[in-house]
């Protein structure tokens, strides 16, 4: 760092109390968020921890005269990128837990030791060297360009215009690449409506739509016998009402009758005497 330059622009040896206070609140949260992401068993919890951490880093940008980058961080990272991460997590399945078996023996211990050493190597010499170095501050530069955003835009479209164009090309390539990777070629012909229907009948499931919750029937069909509340399995179960016209009282016909009726059903079509409300949870 050029000492003459520093002397010319009123160096900062110590930040304001407000900034120090914010930093000492924000920095532990950032570290805890990062540690939580590494240590969290569930990937979704890890993603949320990372959101907290990225938000803290954005606050650090805002503290350091970089409002543009701070807001870009919030919009792009905690907004777009983390939503993308959560989307993919949900697509893959959040319950796909990773195996805790170590494929390399002592890998975790070695990684922890390595990480601690790395952190020490990064932090201690760095802190020692730059501890008393004054900072030049960005107020003068920001003022000269007419604000942070204007100054960054001027740099971006003059000195860094080639990099800017290259990065825009990179973004287009990335979008096309994501489409190519996400596209799946259909290997067989698309099943027609007739084939779909034949398959449903051949599978022997319920052909009609299922009734709504709370309806004591197994299907929205006239040939399906409804169930009566009060008896049967569980709290919500009920014995099927007798189908024969003019049959005996529903309460009198016991489980044997229903058992016979169920024996005639095709396998897989209906499930015992459970009404749909219970059958969806327990039997089907």
């Amino acid at each position: 760092m050029d000492p003459l330059l520093l002397a010319a622009t009123a160096p900062i040896t110590s930040t304001s109390t407000g900034e120090a206070l914010t930093f000492w609140i924000i920095a532990p949260i950032a570290v805890i968020g990062a540690l939580g992401m590494v240590l969290a068993r569930s990937a979704v919890h890890g993603a949320l921890m990372l959101v907290a951490n990225l938000f803290c880093v954005a606050v650090c940008y805002l503290l350091q005269d970089a409002p543009f980058l701070g807001f870009v961080q919030i919009v792009v990272y905690t907004g777009a990128i983390m939503v993308l991460f959560l989307f993919v997590l949900m697509l893959i399945g959040v319950d796909s837990t990773e195996s805790l078996v170590e494929t390399l023996r002592g890998q975790r211990l070695a990684a922890a030791v390595l990480g601690l050493g790395f952190a020490g190597l990064l932090v201690f010499p760095l802190g020692k060297v730059i501890k008393d170095q004054p900072a030049a501050g960005l107020e003068a530069v920001n003022q000269a360009g007419g604000g942070n955003i204007h100054s960054i835009a001027r740099l971006l479209f003059t000195d860094y215009v080639f990099a800017f164009e290259a990065v825009s090309a990179l973004l287009v390539i990335a979008a096309v690449g994501a489409m190519v990777l996400g596209h799946r070629e259909r290997t067989g012909p698309k099943p027609s409506q007739k084939e779909t229907l034949r398959k449903r009948i051949a599978d022997g499931g319920v052909l009609t739509p299922l009734p709504g919750p709370g309806v004591y029937a197994r299907a929205d069909s006239a040939d399906q016998q409804p169930a009566l509340p009060g008896a049967g399995r569980g709290l919500t179960g009920g014995a099927p009402a007798p189908l024969e016209p003019g049959g005996g009282s529903p309460a009198g016909d016991g489980a044997g009758e229903t058992g016979d009726a169920d024996g005639d059903d095709p396998p897989g079509a209906t499930d015992g005497s459970a009404p749909v409300g219970a059958g969806k949870g327990s039997g089907l």
Partner: peptide
Amino acid sequence: MNPANYLVLSGLLFA
């Protein structure tokens, strides 16, 4: 607080 503390935080996060 010295501004270099941000560098320490950055090093910790990287590790």
